[in-house]
Nucleic acid binder design. Structure first.
Length: 427
RNA sequence: GGAGGGGUCGGAUAGUGGUUCAUUCCAGCGCACUUGAAAUGCGCCAGGUCGCAAGGCCUCGUGGGUUCGAAUCCCACCCCCUCCGCCA
């Protein structure tokens, strides 16, 4: 949510921003409606003021005759006021519907473009592996080594269902301990296990609703299953006022994640790259309302994720997402993509973004600064580690000529071995 | 699922239709006293919105309703607590 004042005073910037994000929004219609709103509000305020004054005279009137006279006058006013209020309700309904469609303004450093093909690479790390044998893809590797079972997965869970078995399960548990040890003991991060079953308000607040409803699972009680711990974690301080001395707040937040993948029926249909159900550790930061602070923590969150990939020795690159690849509220986003040999390209493992006060306005998360002024916090988030997706890159980059899969050095202590596979499929 | 109780401006509280405009305490901020601090005293102190300003308006869980007038009465919903039932 942007400030309507900001939209009014910076109409051109907002329009240009929406265009850069390839999001259609009628700012002129919104502003015309806002003029209407303000006129109506002024009229309503005036009548209420009159009513308030009269109300006091009624209470203090000595003569019954005088009393009755004012009351009948107010009965007339009440009808007029009611009409204004009805118009106001209609205006506000439309006004709110338009307001939630206005996207946040992207940063100047965000490149133009309409899809991820236009994302701009800003960094590469690690060496792309060369194999002296015919490398396999992750779908086959995990299956052949008894680490995943897709057939029984879809038998039990439907399309995109999966089981992780043997070293597949062990590898996820190892990765969990790996990432937990790197975050949970840091004094600056608060470890958190967040709910996945979440009410609609946090989804509205983070910008997933109303636009992306078709990507969410909804329960018969009208709650939704979250696709990321960002949603419940951002909801944590909803409608609260924090102290500046408590900022920044950094969460290392775990949750199961559920995504309908409604818009991607044809994509990544095999294996565990794109699935309906997974688990993820997410970094979420609330900081004071300053662009410099946002940028500082954005870089920090990105670096935290990179450090994990470096420890796992997975070659990756960082891209700045182009305008068309940004969500409604995002000001700027880096995707981190690790190398996937079978596709000879980098594929996303992390996504790091900041929002300025777009989310905190909707969620009503504020803080008191040193002068006592109440301001909206800034918010950011980035993946710490999502599983089992990372297994695709580990399997492919660490595969060996004999078909087995090496264990990344950083995980060997947790796995208790240095090579996975050939464990036999459960019959 | 059943029964009962409750949600008031950062926290805690008073307030059951008007005539003090939401009370008081704590916390916070400013000033005085003090070498400094504590204590004490005095003052300020909810958020939002419209307005150049003076000032107006809104908000007592949310949304409706009754009324000239609602924190207060009615209805629906949300959330919290207690007990019973069921259950990992």
């Amino acid at each position: 949510m942007l400030d309507i004042k900001f939209i009014r005073e910076n109409k051109d910037i907002v329009i240009a921003g929406a265009k850069k994000k390839h999001i259609a929004v009628d700012i002129d219609a919104l502003l015309a409606l806002d003029d209407k709103r303000r006129l109506l509000q002024a009229s309503i305020d005036e009548k209420r003021a009159e009513q308030n004054v009269a109300s006091k005279s009624i209470a203090s009137a000595k003569a019954e005759e005088e009393r009755q006279m004012i009351i009948s006058k107010m009965q007339t006013l009440k009808e007029i006021l009611r009409k204004d209020e009805e118009s106001m309700q209609e205006v506000m309904k439309e006004w709110r519907a338009l307001m939630v469609t206005v996207p946040n303004v992207p940063d100047m450093s965000v490149p133009d473009g309409d899809s991820d093909a236009n994302n701009k690479e800003v960094k590469q790390w690690g060496e792309i592996p060369k194999f002296d044998f015919q490398p396999k893809d992750h779908v086959e590797l995990l299956l052949a080594n008894g680490m995943a079972d897709y057939e029984r997965g879809s038998k039990v869970a439907g399309f995109r269902g999966y089981f992780l078995t043997n070293d597949g399960a062990r590898l996820v548990w190892a990765l969990q301990r790996f990432v937990e040890e790197r975050f949970a003991n840091r004094s600056d991060f608060t470890p958190m296990i967040a709910p996945s079953l979440v009410r609609k308000e946090p989804f509205m607040g983070t910008g997933y609703l109303p636009q992306s409803e078709e990507d969410l699972y909804k329960t018969q009680d009208s709650d939704y299953l979250t696709g990321t711990a960002e949603v419940p974690t951002m909801g944590y301080y909803m409608d609260e006022i924090l102290d500046k001395k408590d900022l920044p707040v950094k969460f290392f937040s775990f949750s199961p994640c559920f995504r309908r993948e409604a818009g991607s029926y044809g994509k990544d249909t095999k294996g565990i790259f794109r699935i309906h159900e997974f688990v993820k550790y997410e970094q979420v930061v609330l900081c004071e309302a300053s662009h410099e602070e946002s940028v500082k923590y954005h870089e920090e969150l990105t670096a935290n994720a990179e450090a994990l990939l470096q420890e796992l020795k997975l070659p990756y690159r960082v891209v700045i997402n182009c305008g068309g690849d940004l969500g409604l509220g995002q000001v700027k986003k880096y995707d981190i993509e690790a190398w996937l040999p079978s596709e000879k390209q980098y594929r996303e493992t992390h996504s790091s973004s900041y929002f300025h006060d777009f989310q905190s306005r909707r969620l009503n998360i504020r803080y008191r600064d040193e002068t006592g002024t109440v301001r909206y916090v800034h918010s950011l988030n980035n993946t710490a580690l999502a599983m089992p997706r990372i297994l695709t890159q580990i399997a492919e980059n660490y595969q060996r000529a004999d078909g087995r899969i090496g264990v990344p050095e950083a995980l060997q202590g947790y796995m208790g071995k240095d090579v996975m596979g050939n464990a036999g499929v459960a019959k």
